[in-house]
């Protein structure tokens, strides 16, 4: 987290030295965008808080927790494929789930399918790529997400071959 602060500070300083006006407009842009997403963002946290409180901890843990293993990956990748969620909401959500003991592997399956597999965007994608190519592309993306999840699981020591 400190790394993020350092990167931001350095970029901001370099930008400020290079061009003051551009930097000012960047900051304005950042504030405007932040203001625009704030309601959606707070709603996400509200829904998360309500769901986490109402959903009993054992159920969540059985579905996606430490010992959920492959079932957790399967559940998460289905959720990720079906959901449509911007990254600024998805990753904070992943962070919150991580804090609840959901393994990295499961979160990798969720976030990667979320970003590259689109069940809800199928009607749109079909218009550009046609039915066959759309199905193939999504299947390939799903497979890639699975491979990413397995490698993440290996790297973080959550699964062993």
């Amino acid at each position: 987290m400190i790394v993020l602060y350092i990167i931001t500070a350095v970029s901001l300083t370099v930008s400020l030295i290079a061009d003051r006006r551009k930097t000012a407009s960047a900051l304005q842009l950042a504030a405007k965008r932040l203001g625009k997403v704030l309601p959606a963002f707070l709603t996400m946290i509200v829904l998360f808080s309500v769901a986490i409180t109402l959903l009993p901890h054992p159920v969540l843990m059985r579905l996606m927790g430490k010992d959920s293993g492959w079932r957790g990956v399967a559940v998460a990748s289905c959720l990720g494929s079906a959901a449509l969620m911007p990254g600024f909401i998805a990753f904070p959500l992943c962070g919150a789930l991580l804090g609840r003991g959901v393994p990295y592997m499961v979160l990798a399956a969720f976030s990667t399918t979320l970003m590259s597999v689109g069940v809800l965007t199928y009607p749109l994608e079909r218009q550009y790529f046609g039915v066959k190519v759309t199905l193939v592309r999504n299947a390939i993306s799903f497979l890639i997400a699975m491979i990413v999840a397995v490698v993440i699981g290996l790297v973080f020591g959550e699964v062993r071959l």
Binding site: L4, T23, L29, R33
Partner: peptide, 13 residues
């Protein structure tokens, strides 16, 4: 979040 938004905006500019 503020850091992320500042970085994104800098990139865009």
């Amino acid at each position: 979040i503020p850091c992320a938004f500042v970085l994104i905006a800098l990139f865009d500019v």
